[in-house]
């Protein structure tokens, strides 16, 4: 009887979006009289930071600081249609819609500034700090504040834009299954190290090293939030979670957080996250949807590490101490080889 260590690897990809009945999201952008920008959406923030990311996307596209942008979302009286927040689609679909709306608003903004500066709009650029200037001649400039005032009170222009992003519906071919169920794919590879107590069947995940390729980290700190939290959920799925511990028996289902198990703050693996960025051709500033993918590779990596440690395969989730002990018992002291249930 001993503590045995093992290491396992897994690699995965994950599709962005859910193309079932067509996959649309729309956005509206308009300026206030003093040059702040409102983004109107109906997308839902579940905690992943939709509001903040849409503000950064709008700000980048219009050419203003992020704190000049306010996001109003998830009110069906004011926000244009969004399919919803699921299928790793939020940032990608709503982000593309916001870019389209912000581009249109930026164009009007530059046209108004051009009239004030008596130049062509195509010669103008933004400095990202709240000003519009003639490209190559930064001293010929006007603030976005003054541009918005001019649009509202003098020129009668609406600095606004409409954006929409639609992935058209894909009908799977009944015979071959040819279909386009999603757009760009995020990627991951995880290496997990575990320690297994072959007397109790308990697994301690020592380290997880997660490599995630996500297109573009639009806000690296928020990406880190998602990826670290996702990695924790993956470990939790691998070892702890189910509403039916003896599925298909309906008995023993957890009803609260004492009975439904998840790793607590004292059970954390040493977690490393490394991010690669291969921008997606159709992604907003290249972003893919990493929110779901990041919780997947830990599960098989841990299963493979447990095999490496104690030589048994647990092919049913979750990998509980009971299942490990039963497999060890079934295999005696011999190496389990390929198959053990």
């Amino acid at each position: 009887m001993a503590m045995r260590q093992g290491r396992g690897v897994a690699a995965v990809n994950y599709p962005t979006g859910m193309n079932l009945g067509g996959d649309p999201t729309q956005a509206l952008v308009h300026s206030t009289p003093t040059g702040n920008f409102m983004v109107s959406l109906s997308s839902v923030d579940l905690g992943q930071g939709m509001k903040q990311i849409m503000a950064q996307i709008c700000a980048e596209t219009i050419g203003v600081p992020t704190d000049r942008v306010i996001v109003d979302t998830a009110d069906t009286d004011t926000g244009p249609h969004c399919m919803g927040t699921f299928a790793s689609r939020g940032t990608h679909r709503a982000g593309n819609a916001v870019i389209a709306a912000a581009r249109e608003a930026r164009q009007v903004m530059l046209e108004v500034a051009a009239e004030e500066l008596e130049v062509n709009a195509s010669d103008l650029d933004t400095d990202g700090a709240g000003n519009i200037h003639v490209r190559g001649a930064p001293q010929r400039s006007i603030s976005i504040f003054d541009t918005a005032l001019s649009a509202h009170f003098k020129r009668g222009r609406s600095i606004s834009g409409r954006g929409m992003f639609l992935i058209p519906r894909s009908y799977p071919d009944a015979e071959t299954g040819a279909m386009k169920p999603s757009t760009c794919y995020a990627h991951a590879c995880t290496v997990a190290e575990v320690e297994v107590d072959d007397e109790t069947g308990e697994v301690n995940v020592l380290t997880v090293k997660n490599i995630f390729e996500i297109g573009r980290a639009l806000n690296p700190k928020m990406v880190e939030q998602q990826l670290v939290g996702g990695s924790w959920m993956g470990i939790s799925h691998a070892l702890y979670e189910t509403t039916e511990p003896y599925y298909p028996s309906r008995e023993h289902g957890g009803r609260d957080f004492n009975e439904y198990l998840m790793p607590g703050p004292g059970d954390l693996a040493q977690t490393e996250v490394i991010v690669l960025e291969r921008p997606a051709a159709d992604g907003p500033y290249g972003a893919k949807g990493p929110g779901e993918m990041c919780a997947n590779p830990q599960i098989p990596a841990i299963a493979n590490a447990i095999f490496d440690a104690v030589g048994v395969r647990i092919d049913t989730l979750p990998i509980t101490p009971e299942r490990i002990l039963r497999a060890l018992k079934a295999n005696g002291t011999e190496n389990a080889g390929l198959v053990a249930h």
């Binding site: 903040q52 980048e60 050419g63 806000n219 690296p220 690669l276 960025e277 291969r278 500033y285």
Partner: peptide
């Protein structure tokens, strides 16, 4: 978290002003 910028560097321009910045969350 580490960003490994050496991968796919030729497919990406890292010249954006707001995108890629670790701004605080407006809802926090």
């Amino acid at each position: 978290m580490e960003l490994r910028k050496e991968y796919f560097a030729d497919e990406r321009k890292d010249d954006l002003k707001e995108i890629g910045q670790p701004r605080l969350r407006s809802d926090a």
